[in-house]
Each structure stands twice: as C-alpha cells, then as structure tokens.
Design a protein around this nucleic acid. Structure first.
Lengths: 260, 260
DNA sequence: CCCGAAAAGTAGTCATGACAACTCTCCGGG
DNA sequence: CCCGGAGAGTTGTCATGACTACTTTTCGGG
C-alpha cells in the first residue's frame, strides 16, 4: 500500500495505526525519537516529520524536553470526507439519500457572479438537493458551479451518487475550501423539505471550493438540521488552525478576490 | 522583538509581514528557497520550516517543483484571539462590553461533572455573562470551571476585563480547546438578554479548554447572534485541518474521557 | 510557426552531526 | 519524610550535503 510512499508518510501511517489500535494509549508517552529511529532504521528527519504531522492534527502534544503524549482527540476528517456528504454518511455507517429539487443552468446575477468570480450574465449551473441520512432529511444543499464545471453534472446521474465524486472523476478536483458557519431561520423551502417549523434554527455552512490553480469550482449554501449534524474544530496554542471568529459584515469580504 | 526567537520564527514573521504589506502579492510566486537562503544567510532548514508553517495556515500553496504561490486566505487567528472575546473585539476595533448575569459556586450535577471531569456534587464555578460589541449585545456566555480554577475568578473584577486574561495571569493557561458548533433556538434567557424574538436562531459554540497537562480548565456554552458573528474554517487536501462534521448523538462522545 | 524533447531550475526527501534548552528522575541533605 | 539540586535524557534547532521527482523554460526540428 504505502510501499513506495515517502518514508515519513509510512512512519506516520504506522504511528497512527498504533494510536488507533491502542498500542499507544491516550495519555501515554510516545517512545522517544531515539528509540523510534532505532526501531525504524531511518534518520531523525523522517521520524520528526511524521511526529510533526501527528502534532499538527492534535494527536500528540509535547514540548521541549517533555515527552510527547498521545492526546484523546477528535480525529481530523480527511478532506474528502468533509467535502462529500455521501462519503461522510458512509463513514458513519448510514445510508445517504438525496432528492433533487432543482437542477439547471441560468445566467448569473451580480451576487452570484461575484461569488463565483465569473462575469455577470454568464451561465452558471445551480443544483438544489435535499440530503438524507437513513431516510431522514438532514440538510438542504444549494450548489452553484461555473458553467464549464457544472455542465457535465447536469447530464450525470444526479440521483445516483455524489456530485463530488463525479467531479473528481472528470478531473475537476477541489483541493481547498473555505467554510463560513452561522445560524439562520428556516425559510419556506426548508420548512417544506426538511419538515421543520417555520423559523426553526438551521446551521448554515457557506462554502467556496477551489481547484489546484485557485480557480473557483463551486460555491454552496448548506443548511443542516442541528439535530442531525454539527461541526467540531480543534484548536491549540502550538499550532495555528485556519480558524477564525469574524464579525458580521466581514462575511462579504471573504467572498472577495481570492488568488488568481 | 523577535531578537532571540528561533530563526525559523523570525523568518516566518518576516515572510508574513511581506505578505501582509503586499510585498508578496496574492497569486505571486514566492521567491525560491535558494534565493531566500541566500538573502537571510541561513541554511535551508529554517527557511523550509517557516514556509511549512505558512503552508499549514493556508497562506501559501505549492508542490513538488512547482513554485509556491501566495494564497488569498482568511488569516488564521491566534489562539488567544480566538479564545478571548475581549481580545477579539479589540482586534476588530470594537469596544467589548459585558454584563454578569450570574456568578457563583454550586455543586456539579452529573452532566456537569462528566463534562468537567470532576466528581458529581463537587463544587464548580458558574459564570453567565452577556457580551457586547460597541454596546450591542452579541453573545450569551455560560462558563463552568472546576472550583480550583474558578475560585479566583469570583473575587476578581468580573466587570472589568477578560476572564481569559485573568486566568492566564494566574498561571492557568489554556493551550488546547475543542469547539462544537451548531444552531439552537433562543430560549427565554437569550430572548431577554440578547433582545431577540423567542425561537430565533442562535449560533451555539460549546467549548472545552485544556491546560498543558490535558486537565480541563473550562467548559463553555456560547450563543452568538448570527447577525453579529460567524466562524470561518479553511480546509485543504494537503494539510489536514482538525475539523470534522459529525452526526448528532456523537456530540456526547466528544465530551468523554480526554487524556489525563 | 508550432510542437516536442532536452536542459535548467525548484521543491521534496533523507542522512549525519552538533549544540542548546528544557524536563524528568534520582539521590542525598536537611 | 520532604525538598532541592545535579545529572541524564529528550526534544528543538541549525548546518551541510546529496539525491529524486517534478515543473518550467528553452531550443531545435519538422
């Protein structure tokens, strides 16, 4: 599997395997770098790099001279799992479902054009879906794609699988995303589709996804039933998580001029 | 300032300064490692370490052989800024305000005991405050501390400054925290204090803060007016952000047995 | 003029060696 | 029995050197 992967990745895999299987218990001290070096037969570099990766995920902690300890922490989800509702559901052992409310192309309004970084009036693809977990409605998703990106989606099997997977198989791969999280009252569409009372609180996640070149692939507005999903972030003074609390009004700014 | 800080930190500071002042423009290619090494007169190690830190914050991107580019990204907030409402407000240039609703000690219920990892019936300190930004209510904060941690807070100047700053000055320093974000309807207390309609959507952030030893310092339940604040997270496939979407019901699990 | 192959340049990876800063353990004095 | 200090152990930091994988540029042939 990781046969010809870089050494430090192999070491990382081995270490995280030991943590998950309990060979290294939470609270335990991790073996010293010296002993790890001896065990794996590498130099100190890759070992430190692997440990550094673990630390950046909050799996271990420790400082100068202090023996690092395994932390009990929420496992950081892979990018794929976080981006794809379908993959997330599968990881939970639940059956993802969906119903397409709307799927079509239309000219971009000024707001949409600014968000997607396209010219006003240029065509965009809009897809609105209700997402289910084991038959129960969980989220209302409204996605917007530039026309080039979204066109193949319209002819794809919308009811079948994951839009995310479809895009990836077409060579359109998101590698970066920004999520703005807040709360909002349920509007008529959500009332109907999510079966909640008018004005009920929903967890809103607005997302912008970029490809490897920094071009915008998608903007989305996901509205979750708080009874079905929530979000977890870990934070520490050692490592700076790309996480910020922002004042209202600053939101618009975030949708401005990203790179290239 | 950073006179005797480690080299790679000095380099990081210099680089981020160049990004902020626009010397390195978003979309620009960052100077090559070789030229940076030549300019700063160090070896490649510290330069790479500084670049690696920038990358982990999403400030730059790039791969093998590819020239790294500066990304337009939400600046990652420091741990302090994210944890302290007071500091956050100051950074925004707004005047933080507060009003204490309740402050006292009481015996831990079973739920609270489990969250704080203390024995049931053992005393805990509870502080409930309304927080203001420029006189406008922004958030209702309910904090729970183990008695040892919270006792000095009761005699401190509650109306004056930041609890967070007070704790730090006492040598009780949070270094790690976990935040669970969801939405909730406004209850009577929020209706009264935040001046919203009953049932209005609020953004709820439940937080557990740990000290350097992994002991729990605080659990908190913050309820923001979505019109006043939101949260931003960045995400990429290269670096794994400690971020996860979780199903309801899994929440309780997160408040379980952390390390030591 | 266009396209493809070679060359140059860049970042990723790894090894080795060394010193500094800090923590933990252990032991002896009070 | 408690406390403090010395020493051992561990991690953080930095330098140097080398090779690999990939991208960008250049240049020559068609």
């Amino acid at each position: 599997m990781t046969e010809n992967a870089p050494l430090h990745v192999q070491l990382y895999d081995e270490m995280i395997h030991r943590i998950r299987t309990g060979v290294w218990q939470p609270g335990d001290r991790v073996p010293s770098e010296k002993s790890l070096v001896a065990e794996f037969g590498t130099s100190r570099g890759p070992v430190r790099q692997a440990l550094s990766t673990l630390r950046s995920e909050g799996m271990i902690s420790g400082g100068r001279g202090a023996p690092p300890r395994v932390q009990r922490t929420a496992p950081a989800q892979s990018f794929d799992t976080f981006m794809s509702f379908t993959e997330w559901a599968h990881e939970l052992g639940l059956e993802p479902g969906q119903r397409v409310i709307e799927a079509g192309r239309r000219p971009a309004t000024e707001d949409i054009a600014r968000e997607l970084q396209v010219l006003p009036e240029s065509p965009v693809v809009e897809i609105i879906r209700v997402r289910y977990l084991d038959e129960k409605p969980a989220m209302l998703e409204r996605s917007l794609f530039p026309f080039d990106v979204g066109r193949p989606l319209l002819s794809a099997d919308l009811d079948g699988g994951s839009l995310y997977a479809t895009l990836c198989s077409l060579g359109i791969v998101p590698v970066r995303a920004r999520h703005v999280i807040d709360a909002i009252a349920a509007h008529p569409l959500e009332v109907e589709q999510l079966r909640v009372a008018p004005g009920a609180p929903l967890l809103r996640v607005r997302r912008i996804a970029y490809d490897e070149h920094g071009a915008i692939i998608e903007t989305a507005d996901d509205r979750y039933l708080p009874s079905m999903a929530s979000f977890v972030v870990e934070n520490s003074s050692e490592r700076r998580t790309p996480l910020a609390r922002q004042a209202a009004g600053a939101t618009a700014e975030l949708f401005d001029a990203p790179s290239r």
